[in-house]
Amino acid sequence: MDTANFFLQALLTADMTIRVSVVLIFACLAGLFSERAGIFDIGLEGKMLISAFFTAAVSYQTGYIWYGVAAGIAASLVFALIHGVASITFRGNQLISGVAINFLASGLTVVIGHAWFKKGGLTPPLSDAERFHEITLPFADTLRDVPILGPIYADVISGHKLLVYVAMLIVPLTWWLLYRTRFGLRLRAVGENPASVDTAGVSVVRYRYAAVLIAGVLCGLGGAYLSTSQGAAFGKEMTAGRGFIALAALIFAKWRPWYALMACLLFGFLEAISNLFPNINVFGLFEIPVQFTQALPYILTVVILAGFVGKAIPPRAGGEPYVKER
């Protein structure tokens, strides 16, 4: 492989990495908000799925993408609210509630889709007006000829859809919210030691609901991206475990926003190369099977969880319903 070709391949991989990472970033940040406030969320998958469906369906029906996105976020919020009611108000098991949400999403998307569009659970393909468009950043075409940096700017950084840039902006925003605002301070405290917030005269329940609902909005965006940007229609189970990869990325990032971005890009990169180069031949010596690349995010997460490489310590009050005590 000559240098020019290699560069082209690298550009292609980088571009694809970004495309497939976006869903992970939305879901991972959703999980981050929820778990930082002490609520485990294994229902990321379900919330994204329901949003992917409603975004595509409403977008198709109305012919207007923003109605679709609003519907997707609303659907995801309803699920988030169910999770909140079950795990905050009724102090139920947060994991079981998450499992229920995933079941409901898998079922409802197909049942409603099937009755609505008669296409076995798929939505009809979306036309251009019903999808997000690629955005060409300023000077992308003029700068393309600049060696090396030009193509990187034009092909990797420019030319993505709106939600890609939204995701990239939400990372610093999340960091800022968590570490620079009163809201973030209290939210993190609620996940670490709710009693400290309670004795300070602040409502634990309010902050936990806020976190769970933010997670709902972010999952809504993730789902919307999936069916109207990465894809062009809703397909059955189209999240395909991405909610769980995002959960893995969250652990990998040790519940911190910038690291979450890195982890999502890394896991996205693994997905990209498993798509582009199924079996990688290492110096002609042996072949890395595609399944290994696919499983790598999960293997890495288990290694991190086991504390073999830098222990991942979850928020201390995670998974525990808060019961006021003296």
């Binding site: 009163r182 301070l185 670490e192 400290s196 300070a200 602040v202």
Partner: peptide, 26 residues
């Protein structure tokens, strides 16, 4: 103690008594 263990002393002190939505002035 009702402290958040992985917060700094300052963060623990202002928790619940922040002056505004931004932390920096507090």
């Amino acid at each position: 103690f009702k402290l958040v263990e992985n917060f700094t002393v300052l963060e623990n002190v202002i928790l619940g008594m922040e002056d505004g939505p931004m932390l920096r002035p507090s």
